[in-house]
């Protein structure tokens, strides 16, 4: 007989049926660093999918505060039988169209990110991948299709601690970055690129035919989960651009390009007003920036690794 999950257990340790019951009854809380999310769902498949990519996360105590509350339930009526669907709701609203019933995880991930982008206005949320090394954050702001997630995933599998695939979450008060540790959402050919790059990497299921094509989620490494409350000082900014067949190019960015890449790519820059402006100015002053054009992932990583001691020295000197 399976026991009910306890707060010190991880999601991966928990019996799937027991977890599905918790998810349907009281719901499940997950603490991803700067934010905690509470989700309730009657989908047993969702319970399994969550376990596949959040295995190392501890189960939160039911009484703990959650910043974001979501429900993902199976659609009722005929939609239980014909092309069944799942529906996400938050605060009584349904911000997205229903997803196929076999794809609650992508719906959860998109819904969560959307809610975080709406709610977390004590932090400046830059649209960027973020990883950490030596206590310093490396930001990878970019437009969709630029290879940001692929590069973030690859770095997280080669000794960099993943902070987030989607958000550079900067705390204007402390001047540090916080983790919003969710699985890295990889799309289309990036999935195979990372599977080849790191055959032991843990993935959730693949979801074909989403509005972004095929999507699969890469689970965060156990160390990143363990250290998700450790913040990181600003280190450097790299604007990645994947270009088929291109040799690796590494070029310094001017401050004004860097400013634009951070400010005009942020989720809540305008909401934060003067605080957002001052934060971005501070980051531009603190962080060196480069454009990285790449097609070979190993070469791109080697280029970043080679530049990193210079970043570390600079930030060490600035911190003294």
């Amino acid at each position: 007989m399976s026991s009910a999950p306890r707060s010190h257990q991880t999601l991966g340790d928990t019996d799937t049926l027991a977890f599905a019951k918790v998810l349907a009854d009281a719901g499940f809380g997950i603490d991803v660093g700067a934010v905690s999310v509470h989700v309730r769902s009657d989908s047993k498949l969702f319970a399994r999918q969550l376990q596949s990519v959040y295995a190392h996360f501890p189960l939160m105590d039911r009484a703990q505060w959650a910043d974001v509350h979501l429900t993902i339930n199976r659609a009722s009526g005929f939609r239980r039988l014909i092309r069944p669907q799942v529906i996400l709701q938050c605060d009584g609203r349904q911000p997205f169209e229903p997803f196929p019933a076999n794809a609650p995880l992508p719906l959860f991930e998109w819904g969560c990110n959307w809610m975080i982008g709406q709610r977390l206005n004590d932090l400046l949320l830059l649209h960027a991948g973020a990883v950490e090394r030596d206590g310093l954050a490396l930001l990878l702001p970019a437009m969709p299709g630029s290879g940001k997630s692929t590069l973030t995933a690859a770095l997280s599998l080669r000794g960099w601690r993943l902070l987030s695939d989607e958000f550079g979450a900067f705390n204007p008060d402390s001047g540090t970055f916080r983790a919003l540790l969710k699985p890295v959402a990889l799309k289309n050919q990036s999935i195979e690129v990372i599977r080849t790059f790191a055959p032991n990497a843990v993935f959730g299921p693949e979801f074909p035919n989403t509005r972004k094509g095929t999507v699969a989620h890469l689970a965060a490494e156990p160390d990143a989960v363990e250290r998700r409350h450790e913040s990181a000082r600003p280190g450097a900014v790299v604007l990645p651009k994947w270009q088929a067949g291109s040799p690796t190019r590494w070029e310094p960015l001017t401050e004004n390009v860097l400013f634009g890449a951070l400010a005009f790519n942020a989720f809540n820059y305008s909401v934060l007003g003067a605080t957002g402006f001052r934060s971005v100015v501070r980051l531009v002053r603190q962080c060196p920036g480069w454009q990285l054009v790449y097609s070979d992932l190993d070469d791109a990583l080697a280029t970043i690794d080679a530049a990193w001691p210079q970043v570390r020295e600079r930030q060490l000197a600035a911190g003294q």
Binding site: E255, N256, V257, A263, A274, F277, V281
Partner: peptide, 22 residues
């Protein structure tokens, strides 16, 4: 208005519109 030199341009924040211009 808040203005800061950013490279060879100026970043200027307008509090009434909430917009930033270079």
């Amino acid at each position: 208005i808040l203005a800061e030199p950013i490279g060879d341009l100026w970043a200027v924040f307008c509090p009434t519109s909430g917009e930033t211009s270079l």
